[in-house]
């Protein structure tokens, strides 16, 4: 850990907050992608079974 001096709190807060925000947007995107993909696969299967 480098010596952050008097501003240790500010610097770590900025890093933690930003990485948290990035994490949230990445997680939300990936989670939604997986969910939509799964439901779409199910729907495609249903659809092709009925008409296939």
């Amino acid at each position: 850990m480098p010596d952050l001096g008097a501003y240790a709190f500010e610097v770590s807060l900025a890093y933690a907050g930003s990485l948290l925000a990035l994490g949230i947007v990445i997680w939300a995107s990936v989670a939604r992608a997986a969910r939509v993909r799964r439901t779409l696969d199910e729907a495609e299967k249903r659809w092709s079974n009925k008409n296939g």
Partner: peptide, 17 residues
Amino acid sequence: LLRTRTEIRARRLHAIT
């Protein structure tokens, strides 16, 4: 790109439903 792919899939899902 990931989100656009999701949106395209969601659109297709909407059409199928």
